[in-house]
């Protein structure tokens, strides 16, 4: 029997890796991150290894050849990093109210207002900030070099239920569809006189005439889709055929090995700090 197939072609070997191998890289990066965050005693409370670990994602993005996309997607994460860092550095004085905090820097504008950077706050801000930054950026890397259908196809190959995969992929589709529909409805409601600008109450009142028709029409559509899916054998108890076929790129073992080595080294380092 002839079954049609499609493939996703990528020139970069690391970008073309098997999605499961990429998930392993993410996992190893995460655990290494957690271990590195704990090494702070020899550096007087700072964890420079954790901060340096962020470079690993940058290098990873560079060798994967997705630097532009990566930096673009990092914008939101970077904003949160800055906010978390600033708030901690300027507000948090000391972990224990009994012990006064150490002042690193103070700007004496007046006796009442003098912005101060506290040592504990700075350490805590860097630690929280880099934990968020590292954890988020490895996922940014994963999703910038992997299409959702690749990832879900790979998970299905490893035994995930096809219904779960369908729900996941369909969610991604639905967001686009509903977003477009909501704009149409909003324009239509505006045309017939619903005000979408003005004070808060006016704007809040515009929320309902947008959401209710949107959801209601989608739910009515859903019933028809159930019939369609049933008639096309979605629930049929047999093996399913696939359009998309995945191939390994050959870089999988090497990448997992690299990150495993980093993990082992970090654990050894942590133990040494703990023992010595």
């Amino acid at each position: 029997m002839y079954i049609e197939q499609i493939q996703i072609r990528k020139d970069n070997k690391i970008a073309a890796m098997d999605p499961i191998a990429k998930l392993w890289v993410v996992l190893l990066y995460f655990v290494t991150n957690a271990v590195l965050a704990g090494i702070s005693e020899p550096f007087g409370g700072y964890s420079p290894l954790l901060y340096a670990w962020f470079l690993a994602v940058i290098i990873l993005a560079a060798v994967t050849g997705i630097m532009k996309k990566f930096l673009k997607a990092m914008g939101v994460v970077a904003t949160i990093f800055i906010i978390v860092f600033l708030v901690q550095a300027f507000i948090v004085e000391t972990p224990d109210p009994e012990i006064p905090g150490v002042i690193l820097w103070r700007w004496n504008i007046s006796s009442a207002f003098h912005p101060t950077i506290w040592e504990y706050g700075l350490q805590n801000g860097l630690k929280l900030g880099f934990n968020i930054l590292n954890g988020a950026s490895i996922f940014v890397w994963l999703f910038q070099c992997t299409q959702n259908k690749e990832l879900s196809r790979a998970l299905e190959d490893r035994g995930m239920n096809y219904k779960v995969v369908y729900v996941f992929l369909s969610s991604m589709e639905m967001i686009g569809v509903l977003n477009k529909k909501s704009q149409t409805i909003m324009n239509a409601q505006r045309a017939r006189g619903v005000e979408t600008e003005g004070n808060m109450l006016v704007r809040a009142k515009a929320f309902f005439p947008t959401m209710v028709p949107l959801v209601l029409s989608s739910i009515t559509d859903m019933e028809e889709r159930v019939l369609t899916m049933e008639s096309k054998g979605f629930n049929a108890p047999c093996a399913k055929t696939h359009l998309l076929v995945l191939h390994k790129s050959g870089a999988e073992k090497m990448m997992i090995a690299i990150f495993a080595v980093f993990f082992v080294i970090s654990v050894i380092g942590r133990v040494l700090v703990w023992v010595l």
């Binding site: 909501s182 947008t210 019933e223």
Partner: peptide, 22 residues
């Protein structure tokens, strides 16, 4: 988790997203 629920979940996800957006 009927077939209807299977289609309702993606819709719910999209409603969450669009609600926040609107």
């Amino acid at each position: 988790f009927s077939t209807l629920a299977m289609l309702f979940i993606p819709l719910g996800v999209a409603i969450n997203f669009v609600g926040g957006q609107v």
